[in-house]
Amino acid sequence: MRERRGFTVAAGLLTAAVVGSACEQPEATAVPDVGSPLFWVGCPAAKKFTGGGRIDPGGQKVTFGFNIHASNTCEPLKGQLQVVYHPTQSKYHAGTTSSGGSITSFASFPSPEGGECGEFRGTVRAKHGNGEWHTHDFFAQACDNGEPGSSPGTGPDTFWFEVSGEGPGHGSTGPTPLTGGNIQAH
């Protein structure tokens, strides 16, 4: 059986909204359990996702942009991610070719809202304010649930970013509707 792996996450950015339903799905290719907070195995949905915009988890502003392209076996072939958590001026970067941050795994699945979701994880280079660059494990999920502007301020697309570590600038946004921007599955 395809499984959606889960555990409770520490909420440094804001309280994580853990999705606990729909835990059983059809069989797919097995990949190592890499400890993602919620991670689908396999990629029966789209293998290319692109997006960018703004979310406001807990009333705090987070902006992001990403592009990821995976193989038929869910291997990330090409990808980049930028996330900025503005309250602490924390920046996060990852890419399949960048040094210090990497996207190492990918999965996709049908969205409960009728669209498609992509998940990817790995390590990000992070910098909080004027601090030093360092790395964290990260998890990101992006769901394409419709065209931008069809429900402004409340999605319909969602983005979720989670980074390991304690204190301000760490934790989980939880799956949050886009305030602006768009997620596109191809």
Partner: peptide, 21 residues
């Protein structure tokens, strides 16, 4: 202080899009 810029886009079979921040 901090300035950030990001733009992404893709062209698929039936849809295409770009977004910038």
């Amino acid at each position: 202080d901090l300035l950030t810029s990001v733009t992404s886009g893709a062209v698929g079979a039936g849809t295409a899009g770009a977004q910038s921040v």
